[in-house]
Design a protein around this nucleic acid. Structure first.
Lengths: 253, 253
DNA sequence: GGTAGAAAGTGGCACAGACCACTTATCAGG
DNA sequence: CCTGATAAGTGGTCTGTGCCACTTTCTACC
């Protein structure tokens, strides 16, 4: 019953495979070609392509072709998509590694990653700066089992998820929570703000295509420099909304 | 040249009109009926309907029909859509009006609403509770010019935007910002938390179809009871994502 | 040799029809 | 009176086809 009965889904899965095996920017076969290859009609292909265009995995260009889009769920996700943005357009990011080790998960992290507390994880603590100014503290945890050969360099790289893909890990979904907090002594010292200053606590749990928890990130952002901005549209054509966007879905009443 | 040559857009506009003139939950004509009325084919109708379903204006139910969705950009937006959700599924909301008046906008509010500081606004301050427990303070400002006959009852109603629509105001977009803060003395007293407890400061500016600023909301949410949860998908079928969802759009590389 | 036009390839839009899956209301049977 | 089968109405999927608009490339003309 797991077999895809719907042609549309079969086409979608085929496209997803193409996307995973092709670098960003690469063209995918023309719609009419896909029709022949998969033995479906063009509207079916178009429907599947459209879905992936809407989710941002593909980009269509009239008269030119359809291309693999950049995967945007990255460590910079938050700032890239604008769901969280700097008060005044950002500067240049940099980071300083504070700590790095391969250690047992422990109770708290283990629970979130669905691991035994004794299971090894890659751990890295970084201070993230914008134009040299401390902005956030980030604590990254990746199960060692998920990517045994992961190097420190991989974890430092900007396009971390791209790197994970090379290790055979295909990130598919992230659940992120944000809550207000205040900084403690050590955080205050590292971020250069007074103790008890307002801050945002981010937690992100990332899941791969096979449903495994592949990443747990825990960050403290300075409240005086950060702000979440979302733009909610109602009724306007989605064509009008630019990349800085978060559309909200409704449930049936 | 402004005329809609595309049938699909004509259908979409027709649907938008239906949505505006029908109360939330009302059924719209069946797809096959719309085909006849508008002299287009069913795929065209379905495509237009699908767009509005994706933007959350319509809800389809297999075997039952298609219905006007609740306009979810409301005061409850945050909790309803799950872009912000209670730690453990919410209880029942209620509110206590703290203050209510028709007053001049003043400098700060006037600037945000693009009004002269002397222009009148409807103002209401409410304490919002969940299961009787204080949860947030909300300060709502609506220009008197926008809805001259707005009553206190309108502003107290849960479906505030529906009410605005009856006054000829069609809400189309909202920009919302969230930042961490701590509560001051009076806020602490009203919310029943210690002074300097973490909190979230919400600001929302709502714009109508004509580009007018129609609402400015400023709220303080208890940090210990509130949390923002967003779910970011990459490549998964949007069908899998439930109402608690925020999809992130990408720009072409 | 340079340039303008034609041709080929791409995605964009639309049609008419067929069949399936689900929901609801109706109606006959117990 | 209640219950279960049935039929009608709805959205869900897919086909095969035609034409249009845009982009790129090639070609033939100047």
């Amino acid at each position: 019953m797991a077999e895809a009965i719907l042609k549309r889904e079969r086409v979608r899965d085929h496209l997803l495979e193409l996307i995973e095996t092709h670098p960003a920017g690469a063209p995918i076969p023309a719609e009419r070609v896909l029709c022949q290859q998969l033995s479906v009609s063009r509207p079916t292909v178009r429907s599947a392509v459209e879905e992936l265009v809407n989710t941002g995995l593909l980009v269509r260009q009239h008269g030119r072709g359809t291309f693999v889009a950049r995967a945007k769920i990255t460590q910079e996700m938050v700032s890239d998509t604008g769901s969280m943005s700097l008060p005044q357009a950002g500067g240049t990011w940099s980071s300083r590694v504070l700590e790095h080790a391969r250690i047992p998960a422990g109770a708290r992290v283990g629970r979130r990653l669905h691991l035994s507390p004794a299971a090894d994880i890659h751990y890295i603590a970084r201070l993230r700066l914008v134009d040299g100014e401390p902005m956030a503290l980030e604590y990254l945890h990746v199960p060692a089992l998920v990517a045994p050969s992961l190097t420190l360099h991989d974890m430092e790289s900007g396009d971390f998820y791209e790197r994970l893909r090379e290790h055979g890990v295909h990130v598919s979904e992230a659940v992120q929570s944000i809550e207000p907090t205040v900084v403690n002594d050590s955080e205050a010292a590292l971020l250069g703000v007074p103790v008890l200053a307002p801050a945002l606590l981010f937690e992100r749990l990332t899941t791969d295509a096979e449903g495994r928890q592949v990443e747990y990130v825990h960050s403290i952002y300075r409240g005086d420099r950060y702000r979440i901005v979302s733009r909610l549209t109602l009724g306007a054509s989605p064509r009008n909304t630019v990349d800085v966007e978060a559309r909200i879905g409704n449930s049936p009443f």
